[in-house]
């Protein structure tokens, strides 16, 4: 990706793929999100950084409404998620599902369906949720498996795969939805260090191919080299956001400097 964040933002009046504004979420008196706003433009890769407990994962879960925020709005390509137009009546499961199937989620613990083979995991939602033709989906799934380097694992069950392989299947499964937005929830945090590289490589190539991605991660190298925009969260708030050069090279806030000192030891 050669675009920078500011260029994308200057692009014509197309609504951003994701627009979060004023999101608040409280768990039993504990404020997890405290008025978070964030946009992801088409083709952008946005990395969400921050210490654990800073609300990153909750934010991601609010985007596909796995968690209901207390206040604030989430717009996917200009369409409000979770609430019917007017913002008073909550959406039913079927309406939510229609929006959810336009996003692809990659989970920290992979969350593959253990009773299905690798290929079946990938085609499950496109065939049974999106109701696309099975043959067509299988052909695409096979191509996706080829791309993530797992064509030979087509008929294996998830329990037979390594963590890195599972996560690459997880990514292929998300891509098979032809999503407008890819959500990554700490995709490498559950992996052994030597397996992180294979997953990061797949994510980089996706980013370069122009996918729109919102990535919660602790992989500073990935953020620095791939992100169009880096967002630092702490205590449920966005404390700094900017291009990776600026963020890693010359952070504006004291909090960002502290964070970088602790997490980028190199």
């Amino acid at each position: 990706m050669t675009d920078t964040a500011s260029e994308s933002r200057d692009a014509p009046v197309l609504a951003p793929v994701l627009e979060i504004s004023g999101l608040t979420k409280t768990f039993d008196d504990k404020v997890v999100l405290d008025g978070v706003s964030l946009t992801v433009a088409r083709g952008q890769t946005v990395c969400l950084l921050g210490p654990s407990g800073s609300g990153k994962s909750t934010l991601l879960r609010c985007v596909n409404w796995l968690e209901k925020p207390d206040q604030g709005t989430v717009l996917l390509c200009g369409e409000r998620i979770g609430m019917r137009p007017g913002g008073v009546v909550p959406m039913g499961n079927a309406e939510l599902a229609k929006l959810r199937m336009r996003m692809g989620t990659v989970f920290q613990h992979f969350n593959l369906w253990p009773h299905l083979t690798v290929l079946q995991n990938i085609i499950e939602a496109p065939v049974h949720v999106q109701k696309r033709r099975r043959e067509e989906v299988i052909a695409e799934a096979e191509a996706l498996l080829e791309n993530v380097g797992l064509a030979d694992k087509r008929d294996a069950f998830p329990s037979r795969l390594s963590g890195g392989q599972k996560q690459r299947v997880g990514i292929a499964r998300a891509l098979a939805m032809k999503p407008e937005l890819l959500l990554f929830d700490e995709p490498t945090s559950a992996l052994d260090p030597e397996l992180v590289g294979e997953v990061v490589a797949v994510m980089k190539s996706l980013s370069q191919a122009g996918s729109t991605m919102l990535v919660v991660t602790h992989e500073m190298g990935f953020a620095r080299e791939t992100a169009d925009k880096v967002v630092l969260m702490d205590g449920g708030r966005v404390v700094e956001e900017g291009g990776p050069e600026e963020f890693f090279g010359n952070p504006r806030t004291e909090r960002a400097r502290q964070f970088l000192q602790r997490y980028v030891s190199a």
């Binding site: 692809g104 969350n111 593959l112």
Partner: peptide
Amino acid sequence: ETIEAAVAFGFHGWRLVSRIILPQ
């Protein structure tokens, strides 16, 4: 988690039960 993944992928209602929960 496997159920939550299915919800995130747009499964709900009977299809969620019959495709993801019951087989397991």
